[in-house]
Design a binder for these strands. Structure first.
Lengths: 335, 335
DNA sequence: TATGACAACGCAAGCGTTTGCAATCAAGGC
DNA sequence: GCCTTGATTGCAAACGCTTGCGTTGTCATA
């Protein structure tokens, strides 16, 4: 594989000139630049990232932390970030730290040390000790759905979204409303679930509706968890007429439980989810849609911006949510 | 950030000794090794991957190509691979090349050149030109669900799995069977879909049952595609009694279409999917389960093996599938 | 005591880039 | 014709690590 040295020799210039020519730096005549480009092309030259990294101290690599990669939501966020990073010419190093052991190991060994220019933390809330470790890295950090002082972050308005969902139910006249939440506090320790819970209570209070504690169940943010939660709710002596599931996947599980119980949606039970999962449309699930893909993309853009302009000023970007009403909360019975 | 030089000075040895001590190489007394370890720890030393990579030519990084990351199946495979690579101390560089433009760009620019020790290609079938480009890299390659001469690959028996599914329907007495396939040839150009199609035809032939072409529809491997496919099938003048969907996600879409049409499953229509999607259980969907996670993991293991033992012999590993029967094809009507 | 073997360690030459600084050169102004 | 200026280029010293080879020291053997 050709080195810069060979390109230089073949083009009849020094390696310094090759370097400058290929990196679009000034101080090279257009004629020379063209020649270098041609020769590099012919020799199929490609720069050694290691050498370049050693010389400059920059790697053109971004570390991305994500709790899971096999769940729809995280996959979407990751996809958004990847797209932006890739087209900016950065490589993405993936670290999946959802399991306890993997997470501990990551923060203990810190494999990103000296090998990335920045770190993107996707939907993961850091403990103080973990945050400190990341700060030690001395590189820009970016967050989605979590935050840290002095760093960029991207959010959605979870509280507002929760309000949208619950008010939607209340406005339809429902007063007996159950909540399937993620589990308290969920293992990722994110603020989002908490916000949505608070929204639930606030919206109920706003309408002067009491919250029945036995209708609050954890669904573990999974389909099967949502199903179990719905079953538990249905096992209560009183039956609600509506459910707010804090994630679409839990809502899907709940829908299955309802079907098992031969309860018709929306006639006998109304349900609204949160996320805008791709399957929500097919399932006719009303849901609060959040721009998952864009969340990852926006965070990546913020990070790159900071990286390239070296700007110290950081921002919090809040992305909008939107209630999409489908047959699970309205219209004639279709399920 | 401490360099090897500083560690050496602090430990009163040369950098060569530090290097050897920390890399567990021979030629260092146990006493010295311990001292070096301690000092390195104290100074919070961490090796510069760039420098190490430059000196050795090895990066301890693996490039992973995957068409999508936001779909369940790909996420699972990726997760399996990540787990294995991470615990072997390798970093994973992710390249999502599902879109045409991204794919072309990847093979044109080949960003992994000189910056990974090996490449893992997940559920992506390469065109000849693309394969050549990867071969040029001169590093070990591994495949999941695709193959290339002279390299490791991991498979499932798609043909056998398809047979399991279709025979299951035939054995229940069904003769009017529709097929929702992925689209021909699907954009990823994988052999798996083709195999499953062939299995469908072969199984039908085996039972002497004719295939009705208007019952063969493409579902694009997506939920909404599956729904559209089912609708098209139901629009035919004749109605089948059973459907084989080549992926669970398409089967979910089909189930929704059936519900829209007020057709009861399994009484009026029986359906079997393929994949073992996490939602299949909740949906009561019979399906051919494949060990998604393990497919990625196995491929990663093969790759590491080759990388570390330098063995030139490569292997094809075929993982088993299993038919899981649920209420969508049997028992009393529950949907 | 001299000799050889062997273990432990250091020297220094890479690995392939980048970049500050000096050198060269052409052009323009006096 | 000389000097200044600015553009273009090359020199060479980093960057931080690895590793072949040589040196030193220890110990057993002849």
């Amino acid at each position: 594989m050709a080195t810069i040295e060979e390109v230089a020799r073949a083009a009849g210039v020094s390696t310094a000139t090759v370097s400058r020519a290929l990196r679009e730096q000034s101080g090279v005549s257009e004629r020379t630049r063209q020649r270098v480009r041609t020769v590099a092309e012919e020799l199929d030259y490609s720069i050694s990232r290691s050498a370049s990294g050693l010389a400059t101290g920059r790697t053109r690599r971004i570390g991305v932390l994500v709790p899971y990669v096999s769940r729809w939501f995280f996959g979407q966020v990751l996809a958004g970030a990847e797209e932006v990073l890739r087209s900016a010419g950065y490589d993405l190093m993936l670290y999946v730290v959802g399991d306890r052991e993997g997470r501990e190991r990551f923060f203990r060994e810190l494999p990103v040390r000296r090998s990335v220019d920045a770190v993107l933390v996707l939907t993961l809330s850091l403990r103080e000790r973990e945050a400190d470790r990341l700060r030690e890295l001395g590189v820009p950090l970016g967050f989605v759905g979590g935050r840290m002082d002095g760093f960029n972050s991207v959010w959605i308005d979870d509280y507002g979204g929760g309000m949208l969902a619950v008010r939607h139910l209340l406005n339809q006249g429902h007063r007996d409303i159950a909540l399937i939440h993620g589990g308290a506090p969920d293992s990722l320790n994110l603020p989002a679930p908490h916000e949505r819970c608070t929204a639930f209570r606030d919206a109920m209070a706003e309408y002067g509706v009491p919250v029945r504690e036995s209708w609050l169940c954890t669904g573990d943010f999974s389909v099967s968890g949502g199903r179990r939660a719905m079953n538990r709710i249905l096992a209560d002596e009183l039956r609600p007429t509506a459910v707010f599931a804090m994630s679409d996947e839990m809502a899907f599980g709940a829908l299955h439980a309802l079907r098992d119980h031969k309860l018709s949606v929306p006639r006998e039970m109304v349900i609204v989810g949160f996320d805008g999962h791709e399957m929500a449309e097919c399932s006719g699930l009303s849901t609060v849609v959040q721009p998952v893909h864009e969340e990852g993309a926006a965070a990546a853009r913020l990070l790159l911006e900071q990286l390239e302009q070296g700007g110290a000023e950081t921002r919090d970007v809040v992305l909008p949510t939107e209630l999409v009403v489908r047959s699970s909360t309205t219209g004639h019975d279709s399920m």
